[in-house]
């Protein structure tokens, strides 16, 4: 009995089709003039929110999806404070699992705050590469997810997005667009299927310099 691999490859080689349907190539979509508005519309269509704030003091400026402020001082021990997993130096992780312990024991995680690489204007997705396995788990197990992108962080479409991604060296990376969702019961949209119930994209952007707009 020949092995399956060789048998399959031989079969495929023997039955090679010729469709003669050449690629024409596509012009990559250009950045729309109202990029910010389009991005916001796409994120909101996916059930998420977009907050654009200057970098300085952003933690105090944005609306958080949890009842208690995640950086409220001196309340880290009580359950009334949200448990937080954060990869941003300016916001400390707190609650069970804050010391690098895993979230997989089922301890509730209220909030994950992670850095995103950039956002895709045409679909509202954020490209994110977890630095550590627990970062990815936190992104899935948290009730609420906040993705922080910074500065010149928009690309027009997936075409430009993939130009920025080095797939050949990437063990894991993902586009995240809006919270986890399902419409499997009667096509009724429910946010928070298995993962976060909300996703907020926070774009830290200082007021634009004169004569320079957002570009891909």
């Amino acid at each position: 009995m020949s092995n399956a691999r060789d048998a399959i490859l031989a079969q495929l080689a023997a039955k090679r089709p010729a469709f003669g349907r050449a690629r024409r190539g596509l012009p990559s979509p250009s950045m729309p003039p109202d990029a910010e508005a389009v991005l916001r519309a796409r994120i909101e269509a996916a059930g998420g929110t977009l907050q654009i704030v200057p970098r300085a003091g952003w933690i105090e400026r944005i609306a958080w999806p949890v009842a208690e402020h995640p950086a409220a001082p001196g309340r880290g021990e009580g359950r009334s404070s949200p448990s937080v997993y954060s990869t941003l130096p300016e916001l400390a992780s707190r609650g069970p699992g804050a010391d690098g312990e895993d979230w997989t024991d089922g301890a509730p995680l209220d909030l994950a705050v992670l850095r995103g690489a950039f956002a895709v204007v045409e679909n509202g997705a954020v490209w994110q590469v977890p630095r550590a396995p627990e970062e990815r788990r936190a992104a899935l197990l948290a009730e609420h997810l906040v993705l922080v992108i910074e500065g010149d962080a928009l690309v027009a479409s997936l075409h430009q997005a993939y130009e920025r991604i080095d797939l050949a060296t990437l063990a894991f990376g993902w586009f995240l667009c809006g919270p986890s969702k399902t419409a499997d019961i009667e096509q009724a949209l429910v946010l928070g299927a298995h993962g976060p119930r909300s996703l907020s994209v926070v774009w830290l952007r200082d007021p634009p310099m004169p004569g320079k707009g957002a570009t891909a």
Binding site: L26, R42, A45, A46, V120, E122, N123, G124, A125, S157, L158, H159, A161, Y162, I165, L167, L170, A171, F172, G173, W174, F175, L176, C177, G178, P179, S180, K181, A183, G195
Partner: peptide
């Protein structure tokens, strides 16, 4: 190749559910 992904992903969710992209598009390697 990688350059084929944007073409197919731009069509997939839009054709399937009318979403611009699915909530999760994950890339695994090794």
């Amino acid at each position: 190749a990688k350059r084929d992904l944007p073409v197919l992903l731009r069509l997939l969710a839009r054709s399937a559910t009318g979403q611009a992209i699915s909530a999760y598009t994950s890339h695994f390697r090794g």
